[in-house]
C-alpha cells in the first residue's frame, strides 16, 4: 500500500465524443468514448445485441498521475461525471449527499454499462483519486466534493442529476 500523500494532475487528456447506443433487442444501453473526428453512428451486431446509435456529446477523457510518486490511475472505465441532485430515500447516493450536509457536493462517476451486468464499474482506486484531485484544488474549508461510482445509484438511467456533457453543441437548429 502506498504511503504517498498523492498530488494528482490530469494526464492523457483526450478530446472526443461520448457515444450512447441502445440494443434493439433487449433495450440495454451502453456508452463508449470515441476519439475519432466525428462520432461513429453505424448500427452493428455484437453477440446477442444489435446496437443502434442514440446520440453523442463532445466529451473529454483523462487519467490522473501523482506528481510525487509517479503513480498513474487509469480512468478508461469512466465515461463522465454527473452532479447528483437525487433525493430518492432509498438511493445510496442521495443518502451520502444528505449525510454530507451543506457544502458537500456529490458527483457520480459513470461507467459504460448502466446495467452493471458485467459486475464492473469505475474502479475504487479511480474514485479515490478523483475525490483527492478535485478536493485538493478547493480552498473553501466548508466545501467538499464527494465522488461516487454509478453502481451506488439506485438506477443511474433515471437518477436525478446534471451531467457534465456538451450535448447539442455540434448541432445547428
Amino acid at each position: 500500500m502506498s504511503t504517498c500523500s498523492h498530488r494528482w494532475s490530469m494526464v492523457n487528456i483526450q478530446n472526443g465524443y461520448l457515444v450512447v447506443e441502445g440494443c434493439r433487442q433487449c433495450k440495454a444501453r451502453a456508452s463508449f468514448f470515441s476519439a475519432e473526428a466525428s462520432p461513429p453512428v453505424d448500427d452493428y451486431q455484437d453477440g446477442e445485441h444489435y446496437w443502434t446509435y442514440l446520440g453523442s456529446s463532445q466529451a473529454v477523457k483523462f487519467d490522473l498521475a501523482c506528481d510525487e510518486c509517479g503513480q498513474v490511475v487509469d480512468l478508461k472505465t469512466m465515461m463522465g461525471l454527473m452532479l447528483s441532485t437525487c433525493n430518492e430515500p432509498d438511493c445510496e447516493v442521495a443518502r451520502i449527499a444528505a449525510e454530507g450536509g451543506r457544502g458537500t457536493w456529490v458527483y457520480v462517476a459513470f461507467c459504460a454499462d448502466s446495467t452493471h451486468a458485467s459486475g464492473r464499474c469505475v474502479s475504487d482506486e479511480g474514485i479515490t483519486a478523483l475525490g483527492e484531485y478535485f478536493n485538493a484544488n478547493i480552498n473553501d474549508p466548508n466545501k467538499k466534493i464527494v465522488v461516487v461510482p454509478c453502481r451506488k445509484c439506485k438506477n443511474i438511467d433515471t437518477c436525478d442529476g446534471i451531467v457534465i456533457a456538451d450535448t447539442g453543441l455540434v448541432d445547428i437548429y
Binding site: 466529451a59 473529454v60 461525471l81 454527473m82 458527483y107 484544488n137 478547493i138 446534471i162 457534465i164 456533457a165
Partner: peptide, 30 residues
C-alpha cells in the same frame, strides 16, 4: 468538458454557455 480540465480554483470563467451543466462543471473545479 473543457472547463473541468482547464479552469482553475478561485478563477473567473468567461463564457457564452448558460446551461446548468456549466455550473456543475464550474463548481467541481471551484
Amino acid at each position: 468538458s473543457d472547463i473541468i480540465t482547464g479552469a482553475k480554483a478561485d478563477g473567473i470563467l468567461v463564457t457564452l454557455q448558460t446551461h446548468k451543466s456549466l455550473i456543475a462543471a464550474a463548481n467541481l473545479v471551484d
